[in-house]
Amino acid sequence: MSDLFAVVMLSGIYSLISASLFLDLDAVDVAFTEASVGAGISTLLMLASLKLVSRYQKKTRYKPILAFFVVVTTGAMLIYGTLDMPHFGTADAPVHTHVAPRYLNESMGEIGVPNVVTSVLASYRGYDTLGETLVIFTAGIGVMALLMVSKQTKQESKKLIPADMQQQIILRIVAKMMIPLILMFALYVQFHGDYGPGGGFQAGVIFAAGIILYTMLFGLSTSQEVFKATTIELFTAAGVLLYGGVGVVCMLLGGNFLDYDFLKHDPVHGQHLGILLVELGVGITVASVMMIIFFKFTWRTVKHKYKK
């Protein structure tokens, strides 16, 4: 397909459908993440980058036989691999008998968080989550480094009358009503993660989506007055540092890295505090990285306009 816009839309639809699929498999947290990240923000960012390039793909001179071959082989291998898998939902599958039972049975006593997903994510395997946060931070660094904006362009943009949608009165009014609610919802997702589906990743993404919506409607320079790019750059780092800092504090208090038990006298309280803080760190990093990526793309668009 050479229409990239359609490709982006299809990938969004794909994410949405797989989110429904995850929901059907009772993986609510995964579905939520897939919907917000896969269908939501990544579609948005892809559209933003599409604005920089042409909508249609250049015609390739070769036929991607190799790629096709790779895909077919991979598919065949995957199907071959499923042949001996334990059937879905079997109670005695290794997945259900080895590690998982402890998570399900002990988590309430050890961590005291009703949502087991959160306790696995933020505590049992909290270090992985730190790594994931770092992955997002790395992606942000990549975009920041590659889409550097010169100081000149920044000054130029101050004079700029921003946003194509300035004239869209209906959109502006509706968005003005919605944006506070979106941000509220983000905070709800952030802090409700202990009890229901949610957590830093989804919350950060939703928060960023709200800000991005604002930027699209009211222009980059307006939103930059509140969310300065330089400040947000700092926030991308701050989230990781918060997460890691909690780990280091645990170490200083005598535990292992990320052993929240030592944060307070009562291990369960310590776990609560720890999870709260690291989820906050995740949320901060995710939100600010998403925003910075969008901002950088928009800067680029501005720059292109000026060149023309």
Binding site: L130, F137, E233, L234, T236, A237, V240
Partner: peptide, 20 residues
């Protein structure tokens, strides 16, 4: 006793710190 983790988190935390 923390050397194994220090090995990794020293650069890990230093990287975001660079931004500051």
């Amino acid at each position: 006793t923390h050397l194994p983790i220090l090995q990794v988190i020293i650069p890990l935390l230093a990287a975001p710190f660079c931004i500051f």
